[in-house]
Design a protein around this nucleic acid. Structure first.
Length: 802
DNA sequence: AGCACGCCGACT
DNA sequence: GTCGGCGTGCTC
């Protein structure tokens, strides 16, 4: 007897454990751990997807085992390492194991479920009407209640049945591609036969001649990278110049073959770093290194040379970068060094493309994977090195289930693969830096900028000063003249507006009324492009009112500063300057982000205006001025990481000024010029900031001195939410020692989102062996409430508290 | 999640 | 009496 333990695709607490299924004789030796299978589940004829966790030859189950219906994959899609990882992850993040398994795979591998009504009788008028001449009727979630009732009744009376279909979306799509039988001489001959105005044909033949060894090449590559249209290819096909074939395997897109780069000579500091990490790779030591390297100290070269080391030893390497710095600049540097051994997992990929990249990795076609957070689950074998660049970035933590931190996953995989982890940052997170202090991580300093570039001159502008507070707009005289000077010298400037939450809202000057979202407890923000008021949480839209809905006064107007507003001010102050705005609105479209940066890089604009996203890892040699409009908005948040985030942001953005030969200037406008986060950022002095911040974290019992767990509770009914919160707190109290600190319940900063009320409880602790178990029990005990619209979320080591 | 079972009220 | 409302509990 062959039995499989299977995690089924039903994300609830009650089904969050393996279920046993019989492996039919025909599938013995076919069903192996890590494979997806289709199984019957429940009393009806429902079929769902499941993951095989284990295969064994006996079962303790008392009832009758059902057999596996069919296998979805021919070979396992998850290795034993990943299966083990999913168990650990589920436990650590308090999430369902099925959710963990699914996050490890490309989204197209998630099963799609469909239900069809199939007739059991021929002559029922109601059935005939429902089917409407079709053999089956698909049940979608748009079907009205009446029809659902009808189907249920017909089913009870055995007039119809319901068929469940598990669909696998992950099929390799066939793509059209071009190839040719002609050789290079024939191609040139044919080209010369063409009419001179057959531009596309000439272009196509030239391309083919240049890339003969790369054929076949996909249509979409030709279209996107070379502007050769489908029509042109068809014409060429008609004239027997080319052949059109279908390809399943994704070819490496020809266009993004960047110039090969070679190793750069290392500075002493870089050499030390490379040597230490290489040692750990060679000796297979799962040590975590923290490279604390100022901007421009050449961390990337260290990454590249250590990756090379891993490859030399026939190992693979994984490099994580924040989504936002996954720019062509960055990617080209890696691909330039390692060529087609690299797979890049960026957000610009379609789901199909992502699946193709995943397949390439899974097939061992690549040795290096570069990607954002989720790339930490890349199906690499024999990993020799894991790098996490900009280690402090909050985006490494996923903010919905499973709430994992890529750093933790990386360290887990490092242990299994016996390889080092390299964390790199100019402004490490407090916890990482503290671990380095304690010797848990090995600290590597890189204090010198390459070519001894000088650090930018930073000027802090006190906005409380009379000359500054008297100004109408948001630009102090100092920033204005700084910008003017930069423009005069034909150099470029970056203007940072801290946080988008600070954008325009509507307030009545007569009664103080603020226009708010009807579903969420936030003010609506004005979107100039839509000409509407919009909620950032639920997407609710409404027209801009011209009289106050409360007191009917006409004195309702915009307040606050958004990027659009600042852009207007820039136009008014410097009419001749070309301004590029980069924020959530202008970068919503895929690829828009890269396009804006490219334009700016080509000096097609003088000023780049934007939010946080312009602060990261960009390297524009002509930028000599960075202006920060409002340094303090992140400071005033009621979050224990507020200072850390402010410091990191200001340090990062200041690092953008004056690379290459030119001296950079940074002008920071603030209402808190004496705050240590701002003063230390101005001096680019991480160590001083670290000491001060550690002292304050110690005072207020926060990370890294204490562990934190955030539990948030939500319900449509505010009273119920509060009652549940207090019950929860009491439950926790009984499980915790006197040393633990229990805060709340308190309403979240946005206390109502999508018509649900949110309350949170914070647990701060040093050693609470009971806590984990108690939280799991609580999750189990609250199952009934979850069904009635109640939610409970547990965030282990939250990145922000709001 | 989806389904059955079971217990209540208001209908032919 | 019975049809159908939803609360509860189970799924290998």
């Amino acid at each position: 007897m062959s039995v499989a333990e299977i995690i089924v695709d039903v994300p609830t607490m009650q089904t969050n454990r393996p279920f046993e299924y019989l492996i039919p004789d025909a599938l013995t030796d076919v069903v192996v751990p890590g494979m997806r299978v289709e199984v019957p589940f429940g009393r009806g004829k429902r079929k769902i997807q499941g993951f095989v966790m284990q295969v064994k030859d006996s079962s303790d189950f008392q009832g009758k085992l059902k057999p596996i219906s069919r296998v979805i994959d021919l070979k396992p899609v998850l290795s034993q390492e990943m299966l083990d990882l999913s168990s650990w992850l589920a436990d650590r993040t308090y999430s369902f194991q099925i959710s963990c398994l699914q996050t490890m795979l490309p989204s197209v591998m998630r099963a799609k479920y469909k239900q069809y009504v199939i007739p059991l009788v021929q002559d029922n008028p109601e059935v005939s009407q429902l089917l409407n001449g079709q053999p089956t009727f698909e049940i979608t979630n748009q079907i009205d209640d009446e029809t659902i009732k009808l189907i249920n009744r017909l089913r009870k009376n055995k007039q119809v049945d319901i068929q469940y279909v598990v669909e696998n979306q992950a099929v390799q799509v066939k793509r059209q591609a071009v190839t040719t039988d002609l050789n290079i001489i024939q191609l040139h001959e044919d080209k010369s036969q063409l009419r001179a105005n057959a531009k596309s044909q000439i272009k196509l033949l030239e391309f083919l001649a240049d890339n003969l060894e790369q054929l076949p090449v996909e249509f979409n590559v030709l279209e996107k990278e070379y502007g050769i249209s489908r029509a042109a290819i068809k014409t060429a096909e008609k004239n027997n110049l080319v052949k059109v074939v279908e390809v399943t395997k994704l070819r490496k897109p020809v266009g993004i073959n960047p110039e090969k780069t070679t190793k750069l000579a290392l500075t002493d500091e870089q050499q030390v770093a490379v040597d230490q990490i290489s040692d750990a790779i060679t000796n297979e030591i799962p040590q975590t290194f923290l490279i604390e390297g100022v901007t421009g100290s050449g961390k990337t070269e260290v990454y590249l040379q250590t990756i090379e080391k891993a490859l030399q030893q026939d190992k693979t390497a994984l490099m994580l970068v924040p989504e936002i710095s996954l720019t062509p600049q960055m990617v080209n540097r890696v691909v330039g060094r390692f060529g087609d051994q690299v797979a890049v997992l960026h957000s610009g990929l379609s789901n199909g493309e992502r699946y193709d990249e995943w397949t390439r990795i899974e097939n061992h076609d690549v040795k290096v994977v570069v990607g954002a957070r989720s790339a930490v689950f890349a199906p690499l074998d024999n990993i020799g090195l894991i790098i996490i660049d900009e280690e402090h970035e909050a985006s490494y933590k996923q903010d919905d289930n499973p709430r994992y931190h890529a750093r933790d996953v990386a360290q887990w995989r490092a242990k299994v693969n016996k390889c080092p982890v390299v964390l790199g940052s100019a402004t490490p997170s407090l916890e990482s830096r503290a671990r380095a202090e304690k010797g848990v991580y090995k600290l590597i300093w890189m204090k010198k900028r390459i070519n001894n570039q000088t650090l930018p001159h930073v000027h802090i502008v006190d906005m409380r000063d009379s000359e500054n507070s008297a100004v109408k707009g948001d630009f102090s005289p100092a920033l204005k003249s700084g910008l003017q000077e930069t423009l005069d010298k034909h150099e470029q400037a970056i203007v940072l507006l801290n946080r988008r939450g600070y954008s325009s809202f509507m307030m009545c000057r007569e009664c103080g009324f603020v226009l708010k979202c009807p579903n969420c407890d936030v003010s609506l923000t004005y979107h100039k492009d839509l000409g509407k008021m919009k909620c950032h949480y639920c997407g609710h839209e409404e027209p801009v009112p011209n009289i106050c809905p409360n007191c009917h006064s006409k004195k309702i107007g915009f307040y606050g500063t958004g990027t659009q507003n600042i852009e207007q001010q820039l136009h008014d102050l410097f009419p001749q300057a070309r301004v590029l705005r980069m924020d959530v609105d202008t970068t919503r479209r895929k690829g828009a982000h890269a396009k804006i940066l490219q334009q700016f890089g080509q000096h097609k604009a003088d000023i780049l205006l934007g939010t946080q996203m312009i602060a990261k890892g960009l390297d524009f040699p002509d930028v000599t001025l960075v202006g920060v409009i409002n340094a303090d908005t992140t400071l005033s948040l009621a979050d224990f990481r507020a200072s850390e985030r402010t410091f990191q942001l200001l340090t990062q953005v200041s690092g953008r000024a004056g690379r290459a030969q030119k001296v950079g200037h940074v002008i920071i406008q603030t209402f808190n010029p004496d705050h240590y986060a701002i003063k230390d950022a101005a001096k680019q002095d991480y160590e001083t900031f670290f000491k001060q911040e550690m002292y304050l974290r110690h005072q207020s019992n926060y990370t890294p001195y204490y562990f934190t767990t955030l539990i948030s509770v939500a319900n449509q009914d505010e009273g119920k939410t509060l009652k549940q919160s207090y019950w929860l707190k009491k439950q926790l109290q009984t499980a915790l020692s006197k040393d633990a600190i229990l805060l709340g319940p308190s309403p979240t900063m946005i206390s109502r989102k999508q018509n649900k009320y949110y309350y949170q409880i914070i647990v701060k602790y040093k050693h609470e062996p009971q806590l984990h178990q108690r939280l799991l029990e609580i999750l189990n005990e609250t199952q009934a409430d979850v069904k009635s619209g109640f939610t409970i979320a547990i965030d282990n080591e939250p990145q922000h508290i709001d």
